[in-house]
Simulated scan of single mutants.
Amino acid sequence: MNAPATPANPAAAPPRQPTAADIKRWRQYLADERAEAAVYRDLARRRTGEERDILLALADAEGRHEAHWLELLGDQAGKPLKGDVRTRTLGLLARRFGSVFVLALAQRAESRSPYAADSDATPSMAADEQIHEEVVRALAARGRNRLSGTFRAAVFGANDGLVSNLALILGISASGLPAHVVLLTGLSGLLAGALSMGAGEYVSVRSQRELLEASTPNPQTRTALPDLDVDANELTLVYRARGMSADEAAAHATEVLRDFSIDPDAAVSADSGDGAVDEHEAVGTAWSAAISSFCFFASGALIPVLPYLFGLQGTTAVVVAAVLVGIVLLATGAIVGLLSGGPPLRRALRQLGIGYGAAAATYLLGLLFGTTLG
Rank of each mutant, 00 (worst) to 15 (best):
R46P: 09
T48V: 14
T48E: 13
T48M: 10
T48R: 06
G49V: 12
E50F: 13
E51R: 04
I54F: 06
L56I: 06
A57N: 08
L58N: 02
A61K: 04
E62W: 01
R64K: 12
R64Y: 11
H65M: 08
H65K: 03
E66G: 09
E66S: 11
E66T: 11
E66F: 07
W69S: 03
L72R: 00
L72T: 04
L72A: 05
L72E: 05
D75F: 01
Q76D: 14
Q76M: 11
Q76V: 11
A77Y: 02
G78W: 07
G78E: 12
K79M: 14
P80D: 11
P80Q: 08
L81D: 10
K82D: 13
K82G: 15
K82E: 15
D84R: 05
V85Q: 12
R86D: 14
T87G: 09
R88T: 15
R88Y: 14
T89P: 08
T89F: 11
L90W: 01
G91R: 03
L93V: 12
A94T: 06
R95N: 14
F97H: 14
F97C: 14
S99M: 10
V100P: 03
F101W: 07
F101K: 03
V102Q: 01
L103T: 04
L105S: 01
A106D: 05
A109C: 14
A109K: 02
E110C: 07
E110V: 06
S111D: 12
R112V: 15
P114R: 03
Y115S: 03
A116N: 12
A116C: 12
A116W: 12
S119P: 13
D120K: 01
A121Y: 00
P123Y: 10
P123K: 05
S124N: 14
A126V: 08
A126I: 08
A127Y: 09
A127G: 13
D128R: 02
D128W: 04
D128S: 09
I131V: 15
I131R: 11
I131D: 14
I131A: 13
H132C: 04
E133P: 07
E133N: 10
R137W: 07
A141I: 07
R142I: 15
N145C: 13
R146H: 12
L147F: 09
S148N: 11
S148W: 08
T150W: 04
R152E: 15
R152P: 07
A153H: 01
A153E: 04
A154W: 00
A154D: 04
V155E: 00
V155Y: 00
G157L: 01
G157Q: 03
A158S: 09
D160F: 03
D160S: 06
L162R: 00
V163Q: 02
V163S: 03
V163Y: 00
N165T: 12
N165Y: 02
L166N: 01
L166T: 02
L168F: 08
L170C: 05
G171A: 07
S173Y: 00
S173V: 02
A174Y: 02
A174E: 06
S175C: 08
L177I: 12
L177W: 06
P178W: 10
